[in-house]
Amino acid sequence: MPDGKEVDWTWATLRDVAMKLTVDKAGKDATQAGFDPKTTRQWGFNQQWSDSRGMAVLFGGGGIVAADGKTAKVSDSYKQAYKWVYDGIWKDNFYPSGEEAGSELLAKPNEFASGNVAMSYTHSWFMCCMEGGNLKNKWGVGVVPAGPDGKVTVKMHGDTFSIMKGSKNPDAAFNVMLDIMKSKELEQVYGGLPSGDAERAAFFTAKETQFKFKPGDVTWQVFLDSVPFPDVPSHESLTPNYLKAKQRMQDFQSLIQGKAGLVMDDEIAKLEKDLQKIFDEAAAK
């Protein structure tokens, strides 16, 4: 902390830091009296490239489906996260709203690269796309705080490739997959953290060259240490009637980022009700 005190790295701490890092036109930060959220010039925190489920894993894994696979239930960890994000946008003002993200200051959907967001929670592959921005190599990586239960949870996408049973050309598809795996260049373009240890070291070195970092500028170890803490159940787990559920979740995300003055508990209850209808429809078929 600026006053030199050591504090626990929790989500509450992160919020306080994010608010301090949120600055308006007059140079006031979001914790100060007279801060004007209408003229924010720099935001403290955002989540980039997240769908509405991805943005909800801050406090632990969870989901929108109960264990039986057919009841709509927004897990408590998700509920807490939605409330936290919502307050971050509309009350504490450190998290850009949908509108702010679309302004010239943030150049949606690449807000972090604009240089006007202090901390962003996103995937490692996003390193592909920060070069073009104002940011250059003035960034680093850090660990996310532990959840309220003291457990660390990391939003993780395990990208795998599969060949469909009905594929017309399984052999050719397999060859393509092999080529993707073998090609160092494609691996860099793809940007996901490789699964093999040796490849990982090469991956980090390549990133250092790309951004003209000196060794040690970025704590790559963060990526490696995060791997054992994926969100369980995953935010990308199976959902009944997926297309419709996804659309409803997208509407929910738009709502969170677009409308002030909501009571989150009510909105989540509405969401659950609608999702239940959507799930039932799938079960009836």
Partner: peptide, 9 residues
């Protein structure tokens, strides 16, 4: 407004 019809449908 995208497919969600922002803002708020």
């Amino acid at each position: 407004g995208g497919l969600s019809g922002n803002p708020d449908r």
